[in-house]
Amino acid sequence: MTVLFDGIASGLLLFLISVGLSVTLGLMNFVNLAHGAFAMLGGYVCVVLLNRYGVPFLATLPIAMIVSALAGVVLERTLYRRLYGAPHLDQVLFSIGLVFMSISTANYFFGDHQQPLHLPPMLSGQFHVAGADIGAYRLFLIVVGLVLAGGLQWLVTGTKFGASLRAAVDNPRIARGLGIDVDRVFVVTFALGSALAALGGALGIEMLGLDPEFPITYIVYFLIVVAVGGSGNIKGSLIASLILGICDVEGKYYVPQIGAFVIYLVMVVTLIFRPQGLFGRMAAK
């Protein structure tokens, strides 16, 4: 039970970080490998505020999101937008470039060691329910993850903004003709994706750690979630994250010899049978 619970918690953490990627990659059709860099930025903002300035952990989260969203807006305006509609390969190369730069920048300012994180007493510790050890922080992750999943699903499918976004992605020209400010929709979406990454990065320090190599170490995981879940699909990302989180934790627990092998296997097998992901729609082109 404990293992299953940890799997769910790690799945939702994965969801928190990669849902932002699902937004930029899936909805805006931009292969943004630099997504982990935004998550790392969020992580560092959180750690610096917490350890150097004594800001409470929960208060650092919104600040991390705002900083990362601003960074996202600046980069979107100056660089990313030039590559909308460019071949995927160009987008991949460009964002790998950003990843490399972010790694050495983080290294320059913070050094290459792991950043320590001191959780507030409210979130540390654990309690026992029905024979399982439940970590308070993991429970917190699960709640945040589920709330966010619901909120995003509603934002994309139930609001006017979501409708404009889907229209802008499917057919930018006609969307413009209907009076939708496509540029603005994209900026806002990109900022949202970056902010979500930052939230995930900050929340993930406890379980994933934080060092300059973060964007490279975990990008594979985020991409797997999006690839398996089907891009641009909140529900798909959630389910894929849960599957991967549970498989990963259970795999490492029960068959440690193959450990990390399991999630790659899950991904490749999924993609063989469903190239569009579990819940993917055919690419809108």
């Binding site: 071949p87 991949v92 690839a227 450990g259 993609l271 190239p275």
Partner: peptide, 28 residues
């Protein structure tokens, strides 16, 4: 045969996945 399936994005992911699996395998 894995690479034949799917478009750019799927190919990126599958090739990445195969290399990562071999990495893990070599590590274990």
């Amino acid at each position: 045969f894995l690479v034949l399936r799917g478009a750019d994005l799927t190919r990126l992911m599958v090739t990445l996945g195969v290399a990562s699996m071999l990495y893990v395998l070599a590590n274990k």
